[in-house]
Design a protein around this nucleic acid. Structure first.
Lengths: 200, 200
DNA sequence: GGCGCGATGTATCGGCCCGATACATCGCTA
DNA sequence: TAGCGATGTATCGGGCCGATACATCGCGCC
């Protein structure tokens, strides 16, 4: 999961660890608070050992001069890394549909084909519908033996599930008709070209 | 966190591991999918080693006869365990306000005093408000360099944050006026006595 | 009668990921 | 010049999960 997020960001731009963490936080927003360094650096080493990313030579365009001494390490993705990323993006297991997994997949939907997007959206919907049914069962069947606070928690969770299902349904409808997600306020730039495009 | 959930459930009723897992799933609903056995059994041993729970003698009221052989192990909470639980319930650190932590605390609000409830609800609100501001910043500042799908993800997250803040605000208002959470549909049984009360 | 299969039940192992911590440099301000 | 916050890399312990193994019970199906 982390592998995918890191490879995806490096595909858009070479980066060093610290920057990666910040980008990840803004790109994944709510889904993933902010990746911890205790995960990030070991993961970078693992990805490098697998041949999916490489350390970039000492970048001459280091804006803050950083007078030598164990400075920032800039990573960039390799050809194998791009293959691996595409593979991760397209494949969908059970973990693809829980919060973290779905969030990462969704964040990189712009790099996926429509069939995969549809498959993942529908899988996520199924997952949330199951959760929703579970909550309804609890509220109707076990409701009377739970206290008011617990009930309120379930009701709030149920509400969130119902909203998410509606959200997913809208997305699925749009997807089927070939439209990109509607962006009220940016309707004049529907196919916004991303400034951070692949580096050759 | 897990400690608290397990101690809380055992305070309501002695149970064995499997049952504990199911109860946890229904009580915590969305917040916590279902605790894994890989966590549950080691945790039970740890709690027992700490003296907070004990193995109950072979219960004669085993409904399914379970003809001997390493049968179910029924745990019950000790006096020290109850103290520990009260301590965990009342104390609030940063982890109290993220999703899992808040969910567990909230699920046992019926066992907390009003001051603690208020403190935790306000802490959670602050946390979500920060998240919300972060998302607003991203949408307004970094919006133009993100693709439509990523934007949609942020918007959905922002919406969820706004809803949760409103929910928390309602709860805080109720709490301040001394009311329990309103339960539409069960208004006739506001102070539902819980059948699973403490065992002496 | 017997057979499998799903629910009940306890337990372990590898691995992902987090929080705390340490250390070093840079730029700003007091 | 001294401190402080942002930038930056790195490690360690621990919590929790998913997969797996093993054993018993009740049920339906042929």
């Amino acid at each position: 999961m982390l592998d995918m997020a890191i490879l995806g960001l490096l595909q858009e731009n070479p980066m060093h660890g610290y920057e990666l963490r910040k980008e990840l936080a803004t790109k994944l927003g709510t889904i993933r608070a902010a990746i911890s360094y205790g995960t990030l650096y070991p993961t970078l080493k693992r990805l490098q050992a697998a041949g999916w990313i490489t350390e970039s030579e000492a970048d001459p365009s280091m804006i803050p001069p950083m007078t030598s001494k164990r400075g920032r390490v800039i990573y960039k993705i390799t050809a194998e890394g791009k293959e691996r990323f595409a593979e991760l993006l397209a494949q969908a297991g059970p973990e693809t549909y829980d919060d973290a997994g779905f969030g990462v997949h969704f964040a990189f939907f712009a790099r996926t084909d429509q069939a995969t997007r549809l498959r993942i959206l529908e899988g996520r919907r199924r997952r949330i519908e199951e959760r929703r049914e579970g909550l309804r069962d609890v509220l109707s069947r076990a409701g009377e033996r739970l206290d008011a606070y617990t009930l309120e928690l379930q009701r709030h969770g149920l509400d969130a599930c119902e909203r998410e299902v509606r959200w997913l349904e809208e997305l699925i409808t749009n997807e089927r008709s070939g439209r990109a997600p509607e962006t009220p306020g940016t309707l004049n730039t529907p196919q916004t070209p991303r400034p951070h495009e692949d580096r050759p």
